[in-house]
Design a protein around this nucleic acid. Structure first.
Length: 291
DNA sequence: CGGCAGGCGGTTA
DNA sequence: TAACCGCCTGCC
């Protein structure tokens, strides 16, 4: 372990599992390590997150965060608080799961598979950039694009696990770039969206509601729903992509290409917990696909 | 090689 | 307002 790192252990954590949290499609800057832990960057901090159940199949265990605070001159308590918030550790997911599963056999199976999912408190700018890039793209390529964007145009934060980590470029930095500048990042037609969105944000500030969000170039209904859910704490948001459309049709019997009917179904059955429902169902469907 | 993927924006009718 | 279609890129 490198010098200057802080280690935090949180005991008695339930409903948390790194692979479920970091591999359910909500974030793109966390990398799986050989031991099943994840290393990534958030809020200008680099960390490795692992979970050790107290015994095999135990429903609680020890959550461990090894962190390099980088430029953030936090004291220990403030940094620990940052990670508690970022990882959403103070929310009762047991209660959420019980509510969602009541009378829903599909959800019971989904929650059994992705029992350790939590919705991260990601920075708004990062979620905007990430999900504009995500459109019409596969996860590995989305991760590659974001990584390259950070390396080429972002600031170095520090190193952890033998690697230097870079923050994303700020809106100001991005607003000053051209499509030609961004060519090495291979964002394709999304580069233009990113630059124009950055320019709007430099002028008007970050979006504060769904309407301002939808006005950003490259932000349509699906991308907006993801940003609302992952970056703005709007937990009723229910992003419907091709995978969720499959879930709604194949598992809930909603008409195949009727997105409106799917939104109505989600609103009526999942309500304010729509975003949590979406994550369990999405992770479940992706797992089914891999068999 | 044509088709397609965590869609969007612009153009039609 | 619904239905098409082109789009960068990478991968089958």
């Amino acid at each position: 372990m490198e010098q200057g790192n802080n280690v935090y252990s949180i005991e008695g954590v339930q409903d948390f599992f790194p692979a479920h949290v970091f591999d359910c499609g909500q974030c793109f800057r966390w990398q799986r390590q050989a031991d099943g832990s994840y290393t990534g960057i958030a809020g200008g901090r680099i960390a490795n997150v692992s979970f050790l159940p107290y015994e095999e199949n135990a429903d609680s265990g020890r959550l461990r965060v090894v962190s390099f605070a980088g430029g953030c001159a936090d004291d220990s308590a403030a940094e620990m608080n940052f990670w508690r918030t970022y990882l959403d550790l103070d929310r009762d997911y047991g209660n959420i799961k019980r509510t969602l599963c009541r009378g829903d056999h599909v959800m019971k199976k989904a929650v059994k598979v992705g029992w350790g999912i939590r919705i991260l408190h990601q920075e708004l700018w990062e979620t905007i950039v990430s999900f504009i890039i995500s459109q019409n793209n596969h996860i590995p390529r989305i991760k590659g694009c974001i990584e390259n964007l950070a390396i080429c145009f972002g600031e170095p934060i520090g190193s952890l696990m033998g690697k230097t980590w870079y923050d994303l470029p700020s809106p100001e930095k991005m607003a000053g770039l051209t499509v030609e500048d961004l060519a090495p990042v291979k964002l394709g037609y999304r580069a233009k969206y990113l630059i124009e969105t950055a320019q709007v944000i430099v002028q008007d500030g970050l979006p504060r509601n769904a309407q301002q969000l939808a006005a950003l170039p490259g932000v349509g209904p699906k991308v907006a729903a993801c940003i609302l859910l992952f970056g703005m704490g709007q937990y009723e948001a229910f992003p419907i992509d091709v995978w969720m459309a499959r879930v709604m049709h194949q598992l809930y019997g909603v008409e195949e290409k009727d997105r409106r009917a799917m939104e109505i179904y989600a609103s009526q059955h999942f309500g304010r917990l729509g975003g949590f429902a979406q994550q369990y169902l999405f992770y479940y469907m992706k797992g089914l696909d891999q068999r």
